[in-house]
Design a protein around this nucleic acid. Sequence first.
DNA 1: GTCTATAGTAGGATAGAC
DNA 2: GTCTATCCTACTATAGAC
Lengths: 197, 197
Amino acid sequence: MPKVTEDYRVARRQEIADAALRAFRRKGFHATSMAEIIAEAGLSAGAIYGHFPSKEALVVDVASRIVDTRVAEIEKLTTLDPMPAPPTLPRMLVTAMKREFGTTGVMLQIWGEGVTDPTVRDLAASLVRRLRETIGAYVSTWHQRTYAMPAPEADALGAEQATLFVAAVQGFVISETIVTDFDAEAYLAAQEKYLPR
Amino acid sequence: MPKVTEDYRVARRQEIADAALRAFRRKGFHATSMAEIIAEAGLSAGAIYGHFPSKEALVVDVASRIVDTRVAEIEKLTTLDPMPAPPTLPRMLVTAMKREFGTTGVMLQIWGEGVTDPTVRDLAASLVRRLRETIGAYVSTWHQRTYAMPAPEADALGAEQATLFVAAVQGFVISETIVTDFDAEAYLAAQEKYLPR
DNA sequence: GTCTATAGTAGGATAGAC
DNA sequence: GTCTATCCTACTATAGAC
C-alpha cells in the first residue's frame, strides 16, 4: 500500500463525509436519499459505496465527529486559568455546535434514529456517555481547583452534576430544532443562572 | 347521524390508535409499517384508512394523547394541599409516562421525526410549548402559595424555570431510551436535588 | 365499514465496463 | 477507484367487491 494512495483515500472519505453532513443538515437523516449525498459530493454511487458500506456508516461517521469535537473543546477549557465555571458549558457547547455544523438538529436525528436502529443506538449511547463523562471530569477538576475539594469527593459531585449539564444541552437541542420561536438566549441564561456551581 | 354509529366510530378510532401505540412502542415510528399496525389492530388496510388518512395522522393522535395526559396530571397536582415541590415534577412525569405507555421512546421518536417532517414538527413544537407552559404555571402557583409571592413575579419565575424542568424530562427520555445501562434513579435524584425551589 | 388485491413509487445497493 | 445503468425490495395508499 503506497502512502500516496492511502492519503488519497482518507481525503476522499472526508470529502464524502462532509457532503453527507451538508445533506443531512438540510433534510435530516431519513429524508436524505443516497442520491442526494451522491449529488452533493459530486460523485457517483459506486464511488461512495467504495468508501462507506451503507448510509448508516455515514451517519456514524458524521455523529462521531460532532461529539469528538465537543469533547476536545471541553478538555481544552481545562487548561485555562481560571477555568470557566461549569454553568457556562452548555452555552459554549451549543454555540460551537451551531457555528461548526450550522444546526444542532443532526444530533436530535441521531437520538431519534437510535430508538429503533440498534447500530445507531449503540453509537448514540456511547456519545451521550462520553459527553457526560467529559463534563463530569470537567466539573470535578473545577471543584478541585476552585474550592480545593478532595479528588474523590469532586469526582462524585462531577458524576452527579454531569447529568444536569447534559440535559441542559439536550433540552436546548430539542427546542432549538423543533420550536420555531424558541428563545435561545432566555434558555441559556436560565440554565446559567440555576445550574449548580 | 345516529348516536350509536358515532359512538362506534369513536371507539374504533381509539382501538386503532391503541394498536398503533403498541406497534410504535415496539419498533418506533419509522420502522413500523402500516402492515404491522393493521395486524396489531386485527383489521385491514381499508378499515384503518377509513379512520385515519395516513400513518402520520396516527402519530399525531398518539403523541397528543401522551402530552394531554401529562398536562391533566400536572393540573391535578395544583389542587393538592400542600402542592408537591416543583423539583419532584420530572420524576412524576416520567414514571407516569412509563407506567401508561411502557416507554418514553415514543416521544423521542416524535422529536426526531420533527426535524424533517413539518407536520410532525408543528405537533412536537406545540407539545413542548404546552408542557413548558403548564409547568411554568405550576411553578408560579407553587411560589404564590408557598412563599406568598406576588402573581406577576411568580409568573416570570415560572416561565424562567420551566425550561429547566422540561429539559430535565427531555434529558431523561433521551438517556432512558438509548443508554442501556442508564441509572434512572441517580438521574432523577440529581434533578430533584439541584432543580430550583 | 370492512375486506382483498394491487397499483404505484421510491430508494438502497450492486454489476460490470473502463 | 469511479461511472452508468438497473435490479429489487419494501411500503403507502387506493379501487372495487361485499
